[in-house]
């Protein structure tokens, strides 16, 4: 699976955002998430949404973006129906209308727009280099590396477990999850738990034998292709800051929400 995923990643055409360092994309994600939560005016959210959508479109994976939006719409629709149903049953409970859902929806859409390019544009090797370039402590770097490296292996293991379940006449389906949760737990979880324990023992002993420690492993190792913070990264972060500033300005000038109440007290 790893080989296939690597192949599929390498076959995809490069897009404008791919040359950016992971650190700059992480900075923009954190900035956008903070600003979108702090601001409350629809105009400000629209500015943020427009800018983040442009960034998300550089991912050139419209299908993934549409799937994420469809999931968001589905969840919002279900929550809306649930609130309306509960309000019909218990009138004391608060209800919602479409107008009041605009800002929360835009907020979630902004978060999707900034997180998707970060998650779907990074190759595994780039991520490992990025983790190293973030100068994280060894105690964070090693588990994160093991986790990233083992996700494809565990995905393969889960596929094998699912095949075994099929051989025993049990399919992992929504119906079976609903009707036989104990069986799903036993058939899926127990083999994975033992596999995890065995892998961790073997790998842990191997790491100890290789002398992996904070003063050896991280310091001496040099990445094959070191990630660098370039001028485009600086420009990208500056553009994000400008977009955040423009959104804040919109809130101050166009909206009737007072600037002091624009954040946490912005309920209206």
């Amino acid at each position: 699976m790893q080989a296939s995923s690597e192949a599929s990643l390498s076959s995809s055409a490069p897009f404008p955002g791919q040359g950016l360092d992971v650190r700059s994309r992480m900075t923009v994600s954190v900035l956008a998430s903070m600003v979108t939560i702090a601001l409350a005016a629809p105009e400000a959210q629209l500015v943020l949404y427009g800018m983040s959508l442009i960034y998300a479109l550089t991912m050139r994976n419209l299908r993934m973006l549409l799937i994420a939006y469809a999931a968001l719409l589905l969840m919002a629709g279900l929550a809306f129906a649930c609130v309306r149903g509960l309000h019909a049953l218990v009138p004391a409970l608060p209800t919602v209308d479409f107008g009041s859902m605009l800002v929360p929806f835009l907020r979630l859409a902004v978060m999707i727009n900034v997180v998707l390019p970060l998650a779907f544009s990074s190759r595994v090797q780039n991520l490992l280099n990025a983790l190293r370039s973030l100068r994280l402590p060894f105690c964070v770097y090693l588990p994160a590396t093991v986790m990233i490296r083992f996700i494809p292996t565990f995905a393969q293991d889960i596929r094998q477990v699912c095949d075994t379940m099929k051989l025993r006449g049990f399919r992992l389906s929504p119906r079976n999850c609903l009707l036989h949760p104990v069986l799903v737990f036993r058939f899926l979880f127990i083999p994975l738990l033992f596999r995890s324990l065995r892998s961790s023992e073997e790998l842990g002993i191997a790491a100890e034998f290789k002398g992996m420690r904070a003063d050896t492993a991280c310091m001496r190792a040099r990445p094959y292709r070191a990630s660098r913070w370039t001028r485009s990264d600086t420009l990208f972060v500056l553009a994000a800051l400008a977009a955040a500033g423009a959104a804040a300005l919109c809130q101050i000038t166009l909206s009737d929400i007072p600037p002091g109440r624009g954040g946490m007290g912005g309920m209206h």
Binding site: P143, V146, I151, I158, I205, A207, A214, A217
Partner: peptide, 23 residues
């Protein structure tokens, strides 16, 4: 040990994180 966690402990942590996330 130069660390609070040994490499073995950190590997256990990483493997269980991956397993928990994927399952």
């Amino acid at each position: 040990r130069t660390l609070r966690w040994s490499a073995h402990d950190l590997v256990v942590l990483g493997v269980f994180s991956a397993a928990a996330k994927l399952s």
